[in-house]
Structure formats: structure tokens, C-alpha cells
Design a protein around this nucleic acid. Structure first.
Length: 114
DNA sequence: GTTCTGACA
DNA sequence: TGTCAGGA
């Protein structure tokens, strides 16, 4: 694992920073945490400490969310992503794997939304 | 002052 | 989801 990856995983960001970086309300950020979409580390006093990966994940989550996906749908895909990580070595492969999963659930394919 | 959990006019 | 309470 490269140092870059390690740094992306160090959870040092307070929720206030994540809030500005993602444009999400802290209410939403904590809610997604409850739903298991993100798992920030905890610092003194149970305070959440986010990593750059968490920020990235939140950005994606917010993206899929207003694209019409539900929390559970995202949670399922995220779960499969963990399994894929053990198989897919490159980021590109991971991306494609994710895309596939969402396409399968397909809210865009033929079903109409709105 | 900041963050946390639980709750709901 | 916003927002308030009450505590750390």
C-alpha cells in the first residue's frame, strides 16, 4: 500500500470540515453514518474523524442519492464493493464493478423516475 | 466553541 | 432533514 493511500485513510477531519467539503449538512453526514454508508473513526469524546476516503465516499453517496437511489440500494452496492476490493486490483476495475452494480439495480434503464 | 445522541411542533 | 435539548 502506497503512502498516498495511507494518507487518504487517515481520519483526521472533523465534521465541520467534511460539511464544507461535501456541502452536506452535518445532520445528513451523521445520518449516513447511522445507515452504515460511512464509518468514520472516533476520536476523544466519540467525535467522528473523517478521512479523505470518507469525504470521497460521501460525495458519491450524495451523488447517487439525488440520482434517485435509496439508502439501502447504496448500502448493498457498497457491501459488494468491499468484496470486489479483494478481486479488483486497479481503481478502474473497481469503478467499472461499481457502475455495473448500479446498472443492474437500474433505476435509469427502463423504469421511469419523476 | 464544537460535536454527540435522541427526539419531534 | 431541520432543529432543539442537554451533556461531554
Amino acid at each position: 500500500m502506497s503512502e498516498k493511500e495511507l494518507r487518504r485513510e487517515m481520519a483526521v477531519l472533523p465534521i465541520s470540515v467534511v460539511r464544507e467539503l461535501t456541502g452536506l449538512s452535518d445532520r445528513q453526514i451523521r445520518y449516513y453514518d447511522q445507515q452504515g454508508l460511512i464509518t468514520p473513526k472516533r476520536g476523544a469524546g466519540k467525535q467522528r474523524r473523517y478521512s479523505l476516503n470518507d469525504v470521497d465516499r460521501l460525495l458519491e453517496i450524495a451523488d447517487y442519492l439525488d440520482a434517485g437511489y435509496t439508502i439501502s440500494e447504496i448500502r448493498e452496492v457498497e457491501h459488494k464493493q468491499i468484496i470486489r476490493r479483494q478481486q479488483a486490483s486497479s481503481d478502474a476495475a473497481l469503478r467499472n464493478a461499481l457502475q455495473d452494480e448500479f446498472l443492474k439495480i437500474g433505476r435509469f434503464g427502463n423504469q421511469s423516475h419523476f
